[in-house]
Write a protein that binds this DNA or RNA. Sequence first.
DNA 1: ACAAGATGTGAACCCTGATTCACTTCTTGT
DNA 2: ACAAGAAGTGAATCAGGGTTCACATCTTGT
Lengths: 203, 203
Amino acid sequence: MAYRTTERTEARRAETHERITTAARELIAEGGYVAAPIAAVADRAGVAVGTVYRHFPSKSDLFAEVFREASQHEVDAMREAIHATSGTAAQRIAAGVEVFAHRALRGRRLAWALLAEPVDPAVEAERLHFRHSYRDLMAEVIEEGIEAGDLPDQDVDVTAAALIGAIGETMLGPLSPTTNGGDPEALIASLISFCTRAIGEEH
Amino acid sequence: MAYRTTERTEARRAETHERITTAARELIAEGGYVAAPIAAVADRAGVAVGTVYRHFPSKSDLFAEVFREASQHEVDAMREAIHATSGTAAQRIAAGVEVFAHRALRGRRLAWALLAEPVDPAVEAERLHFRHSYRDLMAEVIEEGIEAGDLPDQDVDVTAAALIGAIGETMLGPLSPTTNGGDPEALIASLISFCTRAIGEEH
DNA sequence: ACAAGATGTGAACCCTGATTCACTTCTTGT
DNA sequence: ACAAGAAGTGAATCAGGGTTCACATCTTGT
């Protein structure tokens, strides 16, 4: 063989790869999926269209990866907040919601894209996956709350799913690119009250 | 003028119009939006493609109308269930959820399309509109519950939004064309418990 | 320096599905 | 019966992006 990729070459390849995903993420964060056709991504990344296809078999794959990375970030942040908090289930969930909501508000457009914007099925599948990750976070806390005797018995999975739905829907208002107005902080406080009641914690 | 549309002609036109919307709704109910390109709609309705465009300025308009009619149906059903029920706020909301969930389960594919399937912006706008209708139903009941002293004071709009999110997300599981399994009745019961706790009704 | 393989290029291609429009057919009023 | 307007037709057109591929350039091992 007259060629074997060396470390430096692989690093260069990885860098191009990342330039592409970064470009895609930025475009989505600015204008959503419609604002990110392959040509625009390539342009922003400073490569040719064909290069994108040297790194990703299809547009779906590229966006699935971008989506996955961004979502994982958010899930990790929420997990960290929950794990860093000790106290009742309601307090821990409150911490998670707080972090989720604030991060979402800071990067509204991207949050909206991750949360609700229409996407093609491959990406939708990723979305589903991460919704489940969020549910799992909630379920874990609730489970522990029940075992500790702080929460009444309940179908943990339903409660977790419903909480995630509640959080998502409530945040949709302030996040939506069309709508806007109202005090986000008050809304977050109300949302946390809702969650506290919903898991059945006495106050 | 040598021509003035008469009643019979207008009726015929209305009938064609309806044949088209019905065909579109049926196709969506069977395979979602992707299963309903204009050509397929025209075919099922027994008209030519061009005829569709004599009745609707664009595909978006056609689908917006179909979506609107179908959604209005569902909202009306829920409203009726709520108004037909007397009792505490939780009982009335339970009745609404019950009806919503059962109707959705009966027409899963259509419900999924109305609730969550990716659509173009014009239709998405309709979706937003009807989400608000649902919220308003919830808000009304909660408001009355607070006034009657059955419910603790709370931000009615947030609670209403969160409830709708919770219901939607929870139903997504059984409705999703991909996923399936579990006992829907048990899930609905758990969902109603969740809603009852979430509005803060003592039990 | 040369061969072989890897990476980069971007104009051309293609596919899908919405939309148009010249033409036919049907209705109505005289 | 005829003119005028409305409704219906469907092949042809168009548009927008994703995807390809023949070619150029760069890297590595001998």
